[in-house]
């Protein structure tokens, strides 16, 4: 924790301070300050174009910040670097599933389990420990039989599960899931819910974006609602959902 930033609270694992991002003339995120509590499930909701995905991209360093400050796990950052995510124990999935298409399912997982440093990576071969880990992950998302298939040949639901499996392989403390339920069949939805609940039991922090208010109400502890790049409401789920502003925004439109 840095001296001089009193707002930083041990209770929160991610905090943003007046962060913004614009694409040309479009201001996707406007001086947004939010706090995500440690442990448990936090969901981010809001209409299309409200900056949810941009927020996740900013937190994981996929997009550079235009201004403001992000505090992840006690470290305050003006520049979030994507390759430093493991240092903060953070991982994510993408809204438009981004797997390594012409690479096998097995290697999609293995690449997350292996060495990051250049020269040790040159010397490293698959070891039994990694093999067991990868097998465990593939079994838990139900893709063990598909391990030698190319990722591009999986069905949409399987791709989505593989991406979640890839995030699990990071053994992170913070998971950012960008629309994990979108476009899934009900049985797949149950499976993802189950995985997320398991993560919660292990004491991890899970942040997910969803449009589906039923799932949000059912799963999450904390809710953040964005509207055109700014914060509309945040707090405990039932509390937030009963506030008049939110009811207006959701029933009014």
């Amino acid at each position: 924790m840095r001296p001089g930033s009193e707002q930083i609270d041990d209770h929160y694992v991610i905090q943003t301070e007046r962060i913004s991002k614009h694409f040309g003339a479009v201001r996707a995120v406007r001086k947004l300050s939010i706090s995500i509590p440690k442990r448990g499930l936090t969901s981010i909701a809001g209409p299309n174009g409200s900056g949810k995905s941009t927020l996740v991209n900013l937190l994981s360093g996929v997009l550079p910040l235009d201004g403001g400050l992000v505090v992840i796990d006690g470290t305050s950052l003006k520049v979030v670097k994507a390759h430093e995510n493991p240092v903060h124990g953070l991982t994510r999935t993408f809204q438009e599933v981004r797997l390594f298409d012409q690479v096998t399912v097995w290697n999609n997982i293995m690449v997350v389990l292996s060495e990051r440093r250049l020269f040790p990576a040159l010397l490293e071969r698959v070891n039994p420990m990694q093999r067991d880990r990868a097998r465990g992950i593939l079994e838990s998302v139900g893709l063990w039989e598909k391990k030698d298939a190319l990722a591009m040949n999986l069905s949409y639901g399987q791709r989505k599960l593989l991406e979640i499996g890839r995030a699990m392989a990071m053994e992170a403390n913070i998971y950012l899931f960008d629309e994990p339920f979108a476009g899934l069949f009900p049985e797949m939805v149950e499976k993802v819910k189950e995985i997320m609940n398991r993560m919660r039991e292990q004491g991890d922090t899970i942040v997910f974006i969803s449009h589906n208010m039923d799932i949000v109400r059912e799963l999450s502890d904390h809710l953040i609602i964005l509207d055109s790049g700014s914060l509309l409401e945040e707090g405990a789920v039932d509390d937030v959902l009963s506030r008049p502003k939110v009811i207006n925004a959701y029933l009014g439109t």
């Binding site: 994981s60 994507a82 390759h83 797997l99 390594f100 298409d101 690449v111 990051r116 490293e124 071969r125």
Partner: peptide, 28 residues
């Protein structure tokens, strides 16, 4: 030796999606 190592595996993922593999902690 290179392509069968972890290094080689990372190369193939850079080819597929450089931004995505960076998220997993690689300096591409």
């Amino acid at each position: 030796f290179i392509v069968t190592s972890s290094f080689g595996r990372v190369l193939t993922t850079i080819r597929e999606d450089e931004e995505a593999i960076a998220v997993f902690g690689y300096r591409t």
